[in-house]
């Protein structure tokens, strides 16, 4: 761990100002990921700007019938909030599938969006990693890649190869719900649709997201449509708790007269960001439940998936999980 200075601003403009005036500074909220990364010398901020005193810790209704989740509300408080439980049970389920109770009590919603990959090579300075050290190569692609991505990877050029996954559960649900992230920064406020928040590795695997340096996430807006009647979150992992998803699936359906009228499917554990394909979700719209072809949807979602040896099993596993999740969400099967 390096030597760093510390600031604890009391309002948002001061916090944003801190980052604008200190190159190499980083925001810290719950610290559940950042501190681990600092201990391993993966992150080396020279200044920590503690934002826990900012008043971003409420959950409020929005004018258009949605819900605004303050960036500093903890994962636990979000999951157990009555409005989230009743209107966005998918989000509650996803959050509670993640981490451990202790971590959820510390981790914040804003921080969760910036959670970094669990790739072993990213964490280990003795091995190459393009995400940690641009241009150094990728240890995982020919190494132990059991937890790695099968979709949207970058593997053509050694210096930009990256098959890391985004580890969040919460983000998979936010993706399915079409959440919108509100940020503020030196150039004012803006909103980022969730689909554009995280990015694929492409030519710049060191970039996880599209937030600009110095910008601060203030809230996450959930649209009114919460899929509260038909939803599920399936997380497949190596143990019952405190393990990252090998594959996870968030499904939200709207069903009228036994017919699907809207469908969302987001996958976790398979790509550098929560994986969605609205055009494939559309295949389900209009289908009758009793005849719905969930297998074709699963096949279509995994089209182009590529395994790297240890993680090749994820392709079949993801398909099975999608089929199960769709059945569960549609109440054709009990939740597992």
């Amino acid at each position: 761990m390096n030597s760093f200075s510390y600031a604890r601003p009391s309002d948002i403009s001061m916090a944003v100002g801190e980052l604008a005036t200190h190159e190499g500074a980083k925001f810290i909220a719950g610290g559940t990921n950042l501190l681990d990364l600092m201990k391993e010398n993966v992150e080396r901020p020279n200044r920590l700007v503690d934002i826990n005193r900012l008043t971003l810790n409420t959950i409020d209704d929005t004018e258009d019938g949605g819900l605004r989740l303050g960036a500093l509300v903890t994962n636990a408080d979000t999951a157990y909030h009555p409005a989230v439980e009743s209107r966005y049970p998918l989000l509650s389920r996803a959050i509670l599938a993640g981490a451990s109770a202790q971590l959820r009590n510390m981790a914040t919603n804003g921080g969760n969006l910036f959670q970094r990959t669990r790739c072993y090579y990213f964490y280990d300075l003795a091995t190459p990693c393009n995400k940690r050290e641009p241009g150094s190569g990728c240890g995982a692609v020919h190494g132990y890649n059991r937890i790695h991505a099968i979709l949207g990877t970058s593997d053509q050029q050694p210096e930009t190869t990256c098959i890391a996954t985004h580890p969040s559960d919460l983000c998979v649900a936010l993706s399915a719900l079409d959440a919108v992230v509100r940020v503020t920064g030196p150039n004012g406020d803006r909103t980022i649709p969730f689909a554009d928040f995280h990015r694929l590795p492409g030519d710049e695997p060191w970039l996880d997201h599209t937030v600009q340096p110095g910008e601060l996430v203030t809230a996450i807006d959930l649209p009114a449509k919460g899929f509260s009647d038909y939803n599920t979150y399936i997380k497949i992992r190596d143990r019952q708790s405190y393990a990252f998803a090998l594959v996870s699936v968030a499904v939200g359906l709207e069903i009228e007269n036994n017919r699907i009228t809207d469908a969302r499917i987001a996958l976790g554990g398979v790509a550098h960001k929560p994986w969605r394909k609205p055009e494939i979700e559309a295949m389900l719209v209009g289908q009758n439940l009793s005849e719905a072809d969930f297998q074709s949807v699963a096949e279509a979602l995994l089209a182009g998936a590529k395994g790297y040896g240890h993680n090749t099993f994820k392709i079949e596993l993801a398909k099975r999980a999608i089929v199960r999740a769709l059945k569960q969400a549609a109440n054709l099967e009990p939740a597992s």
């Binding site: 072993y120 280990d124 003795a126 091995t127 240890g139 190494g143 132990y144 059991r146």
Partner: peptide, 16 residues
């Protein structure tokens, strides 16, 4: 789990 490219155990934390 050892990565034989590096002769190194890779999942060296209690998270992994």
């Amino acid at each position: 789990v050892m990565d034989h490219q590096f002769g190194r155990f890779m999942n060296h934390s209690l998270a992994e």
